[in-house]
C-alpha cells in the first residue's frame, strides 16, 4: 500500500522571544516526525494543546514549510508541487466555523472561491457545482445568498466542509472539526464526514483532543507529545492496549458517560513542560509514573513492530527481554536435538 502523504523526519522550529535584551530561542514545535497515511485511511492525531499537532497540520497543508526533513505527497515532495495543484489535492477544515468564513461574503461566494481561484468552469457551471456540493453536505440551497452570521454553528461548519470538498481533494485535514459545536450538532457533522468519505473516497487526518470522537472515526491513531509522536497504532489496539504511559493517561482521562465510575486520578502532577525548554531524555519523564533512571538522561528510540510505533524505554526494555527470551529459547531448542 503506498502512502498518500508521508513525512520523513519532518521538523519545524520557530525562533521566539527575540527582543532587545534577549537572544532568540528556538522552539521545536514538530520534532523529527515520521508519519505515513495511506489512501482511504482516517488518521487521528491526538495530544494536548501545545503538543505541535496544529503546526504539523499546517505543514501537511502546505502552509508551513518544514525546517528539516521532508513531506511527500503521493511520492512527490509536497513543497515542490505547484501551489494550485497542492491546494486542489489537500484541503483543510478548521475548528471554529465562526472565524473560518469571511463575514463579508455570501455562502455561494465562500463555497465557490476554490472554483474561481482554479478557474473551473463558467459562472453558471460554478453555480451548479456550488448547489451540488451544498446538497451533498446537507445545507439547503436557499442559504446560498445568505451571509455567515445568518447561519448556526453547525450550518457554518457544513459550509466550511463544502468549501473544502468542492474541488474533490484527496486529503482533508480536519483540525478539531467539531469541538466548537454542540453535542447534537457534533454528531451530525461526524456522520457527514463519514458519509462523505464513503461517497468521495477522501482520506482524512483528524486532529482532535476528543478521544471518543477519534476512537469513533479514526482507523489509525498517532499520539503527540511535545512535538514527537510517542505512539502510533491502529485504533483498535491503541485503545485496547495503550503502551506509552502518556497514551494511558490520556485514555484514562476520557470521561465516558458512565455514572458511578467517578473521576479518574491521572497523577500527572507536574504541569505541561515549557516547549522552549523541554525536559532532557524522554520529554515525558517528569510526569511519568513509571519513569526509570535512564528516562531522564537518554531519549528513547522509536520501536517499530508490524505497523505500530511506540517511543518509550519501558517498551524497548520489554522488547529486549522478549528478544533475549526468544533467543534463549532458540538456543535451548536448537541445542536439544544435538
Amino acid at each position: 500500500m503506498t502512502a498518500l502523504i508521508e513525512t520523513r523526519d519532518a521538523e519545524r522550529t520557530f525562533r521566539v522571544g527575540r527582543s532587545l535584551f534577549q537572544a532568540a530561542r528556538t522552539l521545536k514545535a514538530v520534532n523529527r516526525v515520521s508519519l505515513s497515511v495511506a489512501k482511504g485511511e482516517i488518521l487521528g492525531l491526538v495530544g494536548e494543546s501545545g503538543c505541535g499537532k496544529s503546526t504539523l497540520a499546517k505543514m501537511l497543508l502546505g502552509l508551513l514549510e518544514p525546517t528539516a526533513g521532508e513531506i511527500l505527497f503521493a511520492g512527490q515532495p509536497l513543497y515542490s508541487i505547484p501551489r494550485l495543484e497542492r491546494a486542489r489535492r489537500v484541503q483543510p477544515i478548521f475548528q471554529d466555523p465562526y472565524s473560518s468564513l469571511n463575514p463579508r461574503q455570501t455562502i455561494a461566494a465562500i463555497v465557490s472561491l476554490p472554483l474561481r481561484v482554479h478557474g473551473v468552469g463558467s459562472p453558471t457551471e460554478q453555480k451548479k457545482r456550488v448547489a451540488e456540493i451544498l446538497d451533498l453536505v446537507g445545507l439547503a440551497r436557499r442559504y446560498a445568498d445568505n451571509y455567515p452570521n445568518q447561519l448556526s454553528g453547525g450550518q457554518r461548519q457544513r459550509v466550511a466542509i463544502a468549501r473544502a470538498l468542492v474541488m474533490r481533494p484527496e486529503l482533508v485535514i480536519c483540525d478539531e472539526p467539531t469541538s466548537a459545536l454542540d453535542v447534537s450538532v457534533q454528531s451530525q457533522i461526524l456522520n457527514l464526514l463519514l458519509e462523505l468519505r464513503k461517497e468521495l473516497g477522501v482520506t482524512y487526518i483528524l486532529i482532535s483532543h476528543n478521544l471518543a470522537v477519534v476512537e469513533h472515526l479514526a482507523t489509525r491513531v498517532a499520539v503527540m507529545y511535545l512535538g514527537r509522536i510517542v505512539e502510533e497504532k491502529d485504533t483498535e489496539s491503541l485503545f485496547r492496549h495503550p503502551e506509552h504511559p502518556y497514551t494511558q493517561v490520556l485514555l484514562e482521562s476520557v470521561l465516558t458517560p458512565e455514572p458511578g465510575l467517578g473521576i479518574p486520578d491521572s497523577q500527572l502532577g507536574v504541569a505541561f513542560p515549557n516547549p522552549i525548554d523541554p525536559p532532557s531524555g524522554c520529554t515525558f519523564h517528569p510526569r511519568c509514573r513509571y519513569a526509570l533512571p535512564r528516562c531522564s538522561t537518554e531519549a528513547p528510540v522509536p520501536l517499530r513492530t508490524n505497523g505500530s510505533l511506540v517511543e518509550c524505554h519501558l517498551s524497548l526494555e520489554r522488547a529486549a527481554r522478549e528478544h533475549r527470551a526468544a533467543a534463549a529459547a532458540d538456543t535451548a531448542t536448537g541445542a536439544a536435538p544435538q
Binding site: E48, N210, V254, L255, P264
Partner: peptide, 9 residues
C-alpha cells in the same frame, strides 16, 4: 485539555 479537566473535576 482532557488530562487537566480530569484533575480540576
Amino acid at each position: 485539555d482532557v488530562t487537566i479537566q480530569a484533575q480540576i473535576l
